[in-house]
């Protein structure tokens, strides 16, 4: 089993030094994600204007995979429309559940493909998808807690 597939440099980097950490001033969407099984927990803040995600930040305590996934997701989101953000979720989810391979990911999502190795570690898939499930909760409702386990 090759660990470097899971913990690629990009992921380790985002895990150790996550981007977009903190409460987002002026956010108008917020959701919490929680995985009681391993204790991963995060709060996602979005500012959505005119149907576009202007900015995304998060606060949380989680493993390297969850933290990196949240960090990379918030980087990716800014500038996308709500519909595009949902599309990103679908693609990412397909990648994690093995419906598509890294190569089949759209080029624009290249960086997120780095998390593709996670699917060979089934126990860790939930860690990577938690931030994305939280994103959908934030887009669907003003405030909600989602759980994955």
């Amino acid at each position: 089993m090759d660990l470097s597939e899971l913990y690629q440099d990009l992921i380790l980097d985002h895990g150790k030094r996550p981007r977009n950490v903190g409460e987002l001033p002026g956010h108008n969407r917020e959701a919490e994600g929680f995985n009681p099984l391993c204790g991963d927990k995060l709060t996602l803040y979005l500012r959505v204007d005119d149907g576009k995600v202007k900015d995304a930040k998060f606060v949380g305590k989680g493993c390297a995979i969850c933290t990196a996934s949240a960090s990379m997701m918030t980087e990716e989101l800014a500038g996308h429309s709500e519909a595009e953000a949902r599309e990103l979720f679908t693609r990412f989810h397909d990648l994690m559940t093995g419906k598509i391979t890294d190569e089949q990911m759209p080029e624009s999502m290249d960086r997120l493909s780095a998390l593709g190795g996670v699917r060979r570690f089934p126990m860790r898939v939930k860690c990577a998808t938690l931030p994305w499930h939280t994103l959908i909760a934030a887009l669907d409702h003003e405030h909600q807690t989602v759980k994955t386990e």
Partner: peptide, 21 residues
Amino acid sequence: IHPHDAGTVLDTLGVAVRTGH
């Protein structure tokens, strides 16, 4: 270091421990 990350690395080395609550 999160327990989950430690557990995954240990597993690849053949060391079975439990991580969680």
